[in-house]
Amino acid sequence: MCALCGVLGGADHWTDAAARPGVFTYAADPLERRRERARRIAAANRVLGHYQMKVSDWQGTSFILSTATGKTEMVENLSHLWSVAERLSGRTCDPLDPTLLLRLDAAHD
């Protein structure tokens, strides 16, 4: 575990191998790793809002996914996020759904 940022060995997931400095290697700048997680959480929440759900950080190693009614589950990475989100919400998280895309477009504008 990194003594400075509290990050364990890191999730061995393809999304963690990003092109941004500080995210490619686990030895890189811990602050940048934290920022990247914050960016990731903010981006995920823009989408999860459509399903009345939100995700937050847990110890820099996992995510906590919650529904509006309080159902909560920990997820390890982005790939797990969507399957858990579908299970907790009972809805299909479809990135091709025109209603979702309209909402995201409106948020961009």
């Binding site: 393809w14 981006a43 982005l78 790939s79 998280c93 091709l96």
Partner: peptide, 11 residues
Amino acid sequence: SLWLTMLLNRY
């Protein structure tokens, strides 16, 4: 990465 994970989860 957010988009591709969501796409691959569903499709």
